[in-house]
Design a binder for these strands. Structure first.
Lengths: 219, 219
DNA sequence: ATATAGATATCGTGT
DNA sequence: ACACGATGTCTATAT
C-alpha cells in the first residue's frame, strides 16, 4: 500500500463531474489497483476514488487514472509532503455474524418463534416480483408470508405488501397472511403493518441462537 | 490524520459482530474522530470502522473504540511498523455536476421524449406527500404524473403509485395516469408498473442532451 | 455475464 | 431525532 500526503487538486470526469480545489490530502494506492483521495473528515469515505481495474499514469506533478469505462481521475500534485510504500500482505478475511441471512436461517429452523404452531413450507418462495423470505403455514393450515429484516422499516412493510398482492392471486395459496419479523421494528412500520393487517414480531438474535443451541444440545 | 501500520486483530461488536484475524493493516484516524482499518484490497472500503462521534481509549497494545449507541471496536496491536500524524487542514469541499436533477431538467424541456404530444404543466408539482417530478398533459389533455430516475427500480414505482393515489383525489386532475422514466428500468420494476397501469419509458441521457443541442441550434 | 437484494450502507435534506 | 431519497452507491449471491 502506497501512502502519499500531498497538496493537490483533483478532477473527476465519469458518471458525473467533480472538482477538488487545492489542499493537503492523503492519496492511498492499494495493491488491488484502487486509488482513493482522503481529506481529514467524511469518516471512511474518500472525496474521490477509482475502483480496479484502472491504469495509473504518473508524471512528477500529474497522475492520470483511467477506468475501464472511460472515467478519468486527474490528480495535480503541487507539493509532496511524504510518500511511503509498505507491503501489507494478504488479508485473511473478515468474518461476519448476524447479518440478515443468518437471521433468516435461524427463523427457518425455528418457525415456532414467529408464531405458535407455524411450520415452514419453504425459504425464498418465488413470486413474479422476487422471492418471499419464508412461506409458512399456521396451525390451521393458512399460508403465511414472512418478510425478515434486521431493522424493520416502512420499506419492508411495502415489500411484504407487494408479495401478498401477488401470492393472494394464487388460488392454491389464498388467503395468505403476512408477518413482518425483525430485531427491531420502527413505530411507523408497526402502524402501517397494522393498517394492512400484517402481523409484527420482534425477535432477539442472540436469544434465537441460544434457543437453537439448547435445542441442538438435546439431539 | 494519524496513520498507523501494524499487525493487528480486530473485533467489532455492534449492529453485527465481526472478527479480523491477525494481519498487517493500515489504521486511519481522522481529525473528525473517525477510525477505519484498511487492508490492501477492497478498494476504498475499510474492513472495519467507527463513525464519529466515538471515543478511542488507547493502551500500548489495545485500542478500544466506543460509539454512541454502544458499538465497540477492539483493536489488538501486535506489532507497530509505523505511526505518523500529519495535520491536513480544512477541506475546501467537493464540487459535483451532472446528477439526477439534470436529467429532470432535460426532460422538462423535452416532454415529447416521454410521449408524443405531451406538454408540461409544471416541474415539482406539489402534493401532500411531496412533489411529483413532472406533471404533464397528453395529446387528449389527460393529466400525466411523471417520476424520473437515473435507474428505474421497484422503489420508484412505489413512489409514483403514492403520488397517483393523492393526485387522483383532486377532481380537477383526475383521472391521472403515471409514467415512469429512467435511463434503465429493471425487469421487476416493469412488471410492477404494468400491474399498476403505469407506463415505462427508457431514455438515453446523452441522446436527450444531443436532441436538445440540435433543437437549440435551430433557434 | 446479468440481475437482484443487502449493507455496521453513507450522506443530505426536510420536518 | 426521524423519515425519505440519492449515491460515481458497493458487494455478494443466484441465475
Amino acid at each position: 500500500m502506497r501512502l502519499v500526503i500531498a497538496r493537490c487538486s483533483v478532477d473527476y470526469r465519469g458518471k458525473l463531474q467533480a472538482h477538488l480545489p487545492s489542499a493537503d490530502r492523503l492519496i492511498m494506492v492499494k495493491a488491488d489497483g484502487s486509488i482513493s483521495i482522503h481529506s481529514d473528515d467524511r469518516a471512511y469515505k474518500p472525496l474521490n476514488w477509482m475502483n480496479p481495474p484502472c491504469t495509473i499514469t504518473q508524471e512528477p506533478d500529474r497522475w492520470l487514472v483511467r477506468g475501464k469505462k472511460g472515467e478519468e481521475l486527474e490528480i495535480t500534485l503541487e507539493e509532496v509532503h511524504s510518500d511511503s510504500d509498505i507491503p501489507l500482505g494478504a488479508e485473511p478475511g473478515l468474518q461476519k455474524d448476524g447479518v440478515e441471512a443468518h437471521l433468516q436461517a435461524l427463523l427457518a429452523e425455528r418457525t415456532e418463534s414467529i408464531g405458535a404452531g407455524f411450520s415452514l413450507v419453504r425459504r425464498e418462495y418465488p413470486t413474479e416480483i422476487g422471492p418471499v423470505d419464508l412461506l409458512c403455514r399456521d396451525a390451521d393450515g393458512v399460508a403465511i408470508a414472512v418478510e425478515v429484516k434486521r431493522r424493520g422499516e416502512i420499506d419492508g412493510v411495502e415489500q411484504l405488501t407487494r408479495y401478498l398482492d401477488f401470492l393472494n392471486r394464487d388460488p392454491r395459496l389464498a388467503p395468505v397472511r403476512g408477518v413482518f419479523v425483525a430485531e427491531q421494528i420502527k413505530p411507523q412500520a408497526k402502524v402501517l403493518a397494522a393498517d394492512r393487517g400484517i402481523g409484527c414480531v420482534e425477535v432477539d438474535y442472540d436469544e434465537l441462537r441460544g434457543i437453537e443451541s439448547s435445542e441442538l444440545r438435546l439431539f
